[in-house]
Design a protein around this nucleic acid. Structure first.
Lengths: 331, 331
DNA sequence: CTGTTAGCGCTTTCAA
DNA sequence: TTGAAAGCGCTAACAG
C-alpha cells in the first residue's frame, strides 16, 4: 500500500507538507498544494486511518450501541446514523447489546480499543452502569437516558398525549393502553403522558404492560378485547407500532373489525405501519433528525448539549382509528 | 489511559514480555505470566487496538457492507454477523450502500482506511465493480455474487423449487410468481428455480417482476388478482416475504380470502412472516448459519472456500397456503 | 510557508 | 525464556 512517504518523495516535498494538504491546512502554498493533490490522485493514496488514529488517539469512527437491530425503529435509527456519519467522513462501529447490561458493558469496553470519536448509545432497558473506565469519551444517549450523558429523544410524554387527545377528539371514552416494560423509562413516560392527557378529560385508562414487541401486543390485545362489547374498550393505544400490529392481529382473530369495533393507535411510525391492514394511525418519531443531531454532536459540528434535547412527535392519522360506533359508546 | 509500558514497568518486565502474554504466547514463564496478568487486571489495562492495528496492518474489525439495514432480512443478517464477530473478539464496521454502486465503492474505499481483517458484503443488485484498489483484502459475498469472491448464500433455485412443489402438491395449477428486479441475480435464480420446478409438472407460471419490497408486492398483487375467478391464479409465490405481505394486503383489499381464494407463499422467513394474518407459509433461509460461516472464514477459523457455498433452504408451512377451492380449479 | 523529527502503543525480530 | 530496539504511517511541534 502506498503511504505518505511515497507521496512526499514522488512530489518532492516533505511528509509534513503532504500531511498538511491532507488536513486541508491553509498554510500550504497554492502551487505546492496542487502538485501534492495531483500526486495523491496519481498514486491513489489512501491515508491510513489507523496510523492517524494512533497519532491523534482518536479515529474517525463513531460507536453505535443499540439493543436490537432487528427492531425496525432501531434499524431506521442505524440507517440514519450511518448516513449522517459517512456523510461527515466517519465510519460506524455497530454494537448490539441484546438488551443485556453485561453485553452492553463488554461491547462498550471493546469499542474503546478502537479510539472512536464518540458513541451514540441506546442503552439497555434496565439502565445498567454509566461509566466505562477512565478514558473520557463523548457519549450521547438516544431514546433512553444513559447515565449522565445528554439525551436526545422524542418527547415521549407529549407524543403519547397526542395519541390520547386524538382518541378523545374522536369521541372515545372507554380507552385502554398497552405499555412497554414497566422498568423502562421510555415506557413509563409514554404511559404517563397518555394517562395524564386522559385524566385531563376525566377519563381513566386501563393499562396493561408487556414488551415492545409484536407478541406482547397480540397477547395483551387478546386479553383486553376478550370481553363483552359494552365493557370492551372502544380504543386502545400502544407504546409501539409493533405492539399495535400484534394488537390488530388479535382483534382480527377475535372477529373484531378495526376501526369499526376498536380503534388502534401505535407509536413510532415504522415503515410497516403504513402497510398493514388497516394502515396504522400512529405517533411519528423524527428519527432522521434525532440521528442527525446525535452525529452532528459527535463530529463536533454542534457543541455537546448541556441538558437533554426533546424532539417533537407528530400525529399521523391513517385508517386504524375512527369514531366509536353508536352501540359501543353506551357506558 | 494506561498502556503496555505502564504495565511493563509495574510488573518489572519488558514491554516485549507483556506483549507476549497478551498474545498468549507460550514462551513466557508461568510465574512471569501470572505476575503480568495480575498487573494487567490491577491496572485495568486495555491494549490499544489502533496501535496493534498499525503494527500488524490489520485490525480486529470486519467490514459489513449491506444495501439496506431496514430490510428485515439484512437486519437479521447483521445481527448474526455482529454476534459471531463479537464472539470471536472482532468488531463490525457497518456500511450501508442503499443499493447504489457508487456509494458502495466509496464505502469500501473508506473501509480500507481502518485495515479491517476482511469484509462481508451483500453487493448492490446491479453488480457494480469488483475490485477496490491494490490492497489485498479477504472478502466474501453473501446472498449475491460479488466479483470473483466466494459466495455464501442459500440455494435460491432449490428454495424456490421447494415453494413450487409445495403449491403443486396442494393441487394448484394456475400459479403466478412475483419476482424481484430482473437485473438481480438472486431474483433471476429464484424465478428460474420456481419456473423450472413448475415446468417439470407441465405447468406454466405467469411471472411479473418488481422490487423486493412491500409496495411492489402490493401493486403487482393487485394487478395479478384483479381478474375473474376462473382466470385468476389460485396461488402466487413471491421472491420475498415483504412482497408476500404486500400481496396479502392486496388480496384482502380486493375482498379475496387467503388462502381460501388465493394461496400465498413467500421467501426468507423474516420474523414478521409468523405474525401477519394469515401467518405466512415461506421458504426459510438459514441466516444464522450463513452469518456464522462468513465470520468463521473472516476470522480464520475456516479456510477461505474455493468455490461458492450454497446452504439449504427449508419449507415452513403456515396458514397462507391451502388446496384450491373446488370452483377455482375449473380451468 | 516548508522541512525535520519525535513519538502515538504495540509487535516482532534479534540478541543475550 | 526474556530484553532491547526498530519500526508500522501519520501528525504536530519546532526550526528555519
Amino acid at each position: 500500500m502506498v503511504n505518505i512517504k511515497d507521496v512526499a518523495a514522488r512530489a518532492n516535498v516533505s511528509v509534513g507538507t503532504v500531511s498538511r494538504v491532507l488536513a486541508k491546512n491553509k498554510t500550504v502554498g497554492k502551487e505546492l498544494r496542487e502538485t501534492v493533490e495531483a500526486t495523491i490522485r496519481e498514486l491513489n493514496f489512501q491515508p491510513s486511518g489507523v496510523a492517524r488514529g494512533l497519532r491523534r488517539s482518536r479515529t474517525d469512527m463513531i460507536g453505535l450501541v443499540i439493543p436490537d437491530i432487528t427492531n425496525p425503529f432501531f434499524a431506521e435509527l442505524a440507517k440514519h446514523v450511518e448516513a449522517s456519519a459517512s456523510g461527515a467522513g466517519y465510519s460506524v462501529l455497530l454494537c448490539i447489546t441484546n438488551d443485556d447490561p453485561a453485553i452492553e458493558a463488554a461491547q462498550i469496553t471493546s469499542l474503546l480499543k478502537s479510539y472512536p470519536t464518540g458513541m451514540i448509545v441506546v442503552p439497555t432497558q434496565s439502565g445498567g452502569p454509566t461509566g466505562w473506565g477512565e478514558r473520557e469519551l463523548p457519549a450521547i444517549a438516544v431514546d433512553r437516558p444513559f447515565g449522565g450523558h445528554p439525551l436526545i429523544s422524542v418527547d415521549h410524554r407529549a407524543g403519547a398525549g397526542l395519541a390520547a387527545r386524538h382518541l378523545i377528539d374522536l369521541g372515545h371514552r372507554r380507552i385502554a393502553y398497552i405499555a412497554g416494560p414497566d422498568d423502562a423509562p421510555v415506557s413509563r413516560q409514554r404511559r404517563e403522558g397518555f394517562v395524564q392527557a386522559l385524566a385531563e378529560a376525566d377519563i381513566e385508562a386501563v393499562c396493561v404492560s408487556g414488551q415492545f414487541d409484536y407478541q406482547s401486543g397480540e397477547a395483551l390485545g387478546r386479553f383486553l378485547l376478550q370481553r363483552a362489547p359494552g365493557v370492551r374498550p372502544t380504543a386502545v393505544a400502544t407504546a409501539s407500532d409493533q405492539q399495535a400490529i400484534g394488537l390488530i392481529r388479535a382483534a382480527t382473530d377475535l372477529g373484531l373489525s378495526v376501526p369499526g369495533d376498536v380503534s388502534i393507535i401505535g407509536f413510532d411510525d415504522i415503515p410497516l405501519a403504513n402497510l398493514v391492514t388497516p394502515r396504522l394511525t400512529t405517533i411519528r418519531q423524527p428519527v432522521a433528525s434525532i440521528a442527525a443531531s446525535a452525529v452532528a454532536i459527535m463530529v463536533g459540528d454542534t457543541p455537546m448539549p448541556e441538558g437533554d434535547a426533546l424532539m417533537e412527535a407528530t400525529l399521523v392519522v391513517r385508517s386504524s382509528t375512527a369514531a366509536p360506533g353508536p352501540e359501543q359508546s353506551s357506558e
